[in-house]
Every structure is written in C-alpha cells, then in structure tokens.
Nucleic acid binder design. Sequence first.
DNA 1: CTGAATCCTTTTAGATACTG
DNA 2: CAGTATCTAAAAGGATTCAG
Lengths: 131, 131
Amino acid sequence: MSEQVHEPRMQSMCEGPQGDPEVFRSILARVGDKWSMMLIGMLQEGPRRFTELKAMTQGISSRMLTQTLRQLERDGLVKREMFAEIPPRVEYSVTDLGRSLIPAVLAIAEWASAHTNEIAANREDYDAAVE
Amino acid sequence: MSEQVHEPRMQSMCEGPQGDPEVFRSILARVGDKWSMMLIGMLQEGPRRFTELKAMTQGISSRMLTQTLRQLERDGLVKREMFAEIPPRVEYSVTDLGRSLIPAVLAIAEWASAHTNEIAANREDYDAAVE
DNA sequence: CTGAATCCTTTTAGATACTG
DNA sequence: CAGTATCTAAAAGGATTCAG
C-alpha cells in the first residue's frame, strides 16, 4: 500500500536485500580493503604479471599480494592465467564483473577526493579539542 | 597536450589527488568498516541515542559502538550532543558531510546487492575447484 | 618467476566488570 | 544512561626462508 522504494536504503546494507548477508557485508569489506581496489585499478589498464603488480603496488608484500589476488579471483573479480613456460608466467586481469564494480568505487573515490582536506581539518579540530 | 581526464582514475586512489593520501585511504577504510556505514544509515532517519543505536545495531558491543561513533564524530560525519540531564542523554545525528557520503555508498550497496548471488556462486565454484 | 610455509609481532575486537 | 577499563583470544600482517 505504501510506496515502494526502489533504491536500496542504507538500512538494507545490514541485511542485504537478496542473498547471504555475510556475503553482502564481505563485499563492502573488500572495497574498503587496503589493496583490493588498488589492484583492480591497476589491472584496469590491462593484464599484469605478479611481479609487475608487486612493483606497482608500493609497500605490499608477496604474501599480501598473493592473498588479495586470491580473494579477488575467488569472488570472480579478477582472472588468473598460468602459462606453462620456464620461467613460469602468470597473468592477472579484471573480469567483466570486476570492471562493473569500478564506477561505484569511483563514486566513493570522487567523494573522498573532494572531502579529504575537510576531513583532515575536522580531525585536527577534534584532536585539538580533546587534546 | 593530452586530453585531461576529469574523473578520478582508480590509480588516483593510491595517491589521493589532493590532500594527505593516508587520510584518503582511511576514508575508504571507513566505508568498508563493519559498523560505520550501518550507523550512518540508522542516523539518516533522525537523531538517535546511544542505547537506541546499540539496540538497533544487532551484535555490536558498547565498546565498538563508542569507538565507531567517536571516529565518525572525529571525521565530522556524525555530530554528538550531550544534554546535562539526569540520567544523562546523548544524541547522535548525521552531519551534512555525512549525508553527502550516502549516495556514493548507496552505489556500492546497489552493486553489492545486485551481485551478491553471483559472487556467492563464484566462491562456491572456486572453493570446489581448489577443494 | 611465482608463489607457499613458517615464525613472530601488532592490531583488533569480544566478554566482563565497573563508574559518574 | 552512556560510557570506560581491563583482559584476552583471534586475526592480520611483515620478514624471512624455501621450492617448483
């Protein structure tokens, strides 16, 4: 009887309108993850090898790179291709699913970019007030 | 000489086009945080008291609720008002800045909502393949 | 080259008890 | 009511070493 709201509401983020709420939450966590979106961004321009990614992603350890790529692969956001060569070559690339996520992440990135200074100032004020 | 791209690229997520890159990253982390956006969502409908939020946010401890609210307050996404009454009353509400973040988060939420099942299936496939 | 395995330190967060 | 303090278990993450 009441109007149906089609856009998901923030509330719905708790339950996940469809599908497993845990999966839903983990997607959000993946986006907020330190390396995941950074890697997706890098792969956006084309396939990259493990070592390339490691060099591009300043500060990441092999361990974290492997882990993060595995999770992205598991979710189907990234594809992993192994070539039986010597020395071995492995290429990572974004999938269509991964690519479809980019605009939404970019929206956050834009907001963050626009408000970074304001937030930094807020923090300073807060910290100064609390001492 | 080359065309200027106005939209932030995923790459820029690493450096943060303007302002402190660490602040920039921490914003993304906040969005991916387990409770932050859930709380913003709840406050969207109006000011809430500590106990109300705790009751609404099923599974959160006082400790985490306090911590999360403090961080949101520090960033200027949430406002905290104390009333000198007995018993004490404290009201939390979203700020304009906090409200401005909602659409971007909703974009992620929509994507997550639309792809939860697909991702769950991907994970099953992956796990089955790896054993 | 592309990791896996191990060790070890740091961080996080839940449970519990207590206070103005 | 609205937290703080403390303790602890668990998880995350870096460094290092080794392997196909």
